[in-house]
């Protein structure tokens, strides 16, 4: 007998977000940048809200971040994440001025401003997710 395990939610990339997911698959965190005014924006979307340009290119993030806030997930909202509980979901300020949500591993103490580094973890079927760890 095969017991079906519901799989984790996978992203359905849009034309705007495909380079973001492709970058992660290559082990790089890339951020969308307005090709006209230079403003970095996240999450990927069609239009720059500062100058209303549709033109965008991509810039690789430095990987430096700090902890903006967090939660520790205890309740199994999805069976595919049950084995990982409890896990820390961190909201991180990136050096580029936008934020990222990722699981944070290996932090003994959580506090606002904690220096973090961005890493990458394969999540199966070609999907790579960002992961955060304490810097240094």
């Amino acid at each position: 007998m095969i017991t079906a395990m519901p799989s984790k939610p996978v992203p359905e990339p849009t034309p705007e977000s495909r380079p973001y997911w492709q970058g992660l698959a290559e082990g790089r965190l890339v951020l969308q940048r307005c090709a006209d005014c230079g403003r970095v924006r996240h999450y990927p979307r069609p239009l720059c809200d500062a100058c209303h340009s549709f033109a965008a290119d991509w810039v690789e993030a430095s990987g430096a971040a700090t902890l903006h806030s967090w939660t520790v997930a205890h309740h199994p909202y999805h069976p595919a994440f049950r084995a990982e509980l409890p896990y820390v979901l961190a909201t991180a300020d990136l050096a580029e001025g936008v934020r990222l949500v990722a699981q944070l591993r290996g932090a003994a103490v959580l506090r606002l401003g904690l220096p973090l580094r961005i890493g990458f973890e394969p999540a199966g079927e070609g999907l790579v997710l960002p992961v955060l760890r304490p810097a240094g």
Binding site: K8, P9, V10, P11, E12, P13, T14, S17, Y43, A73, Y77, H78, F81, E84, Y87, L89, V101, A102, Q103, A123, L127, L129, P130
Partner: peptide, 9 residues
């Protein structure tokens, strides 16, 4: 798209 895959559900 961007947060559920890491476990924010």
């Amino acid at each position: 798209e961007f947060e559920a895959p890491v476990g924010a559900l």
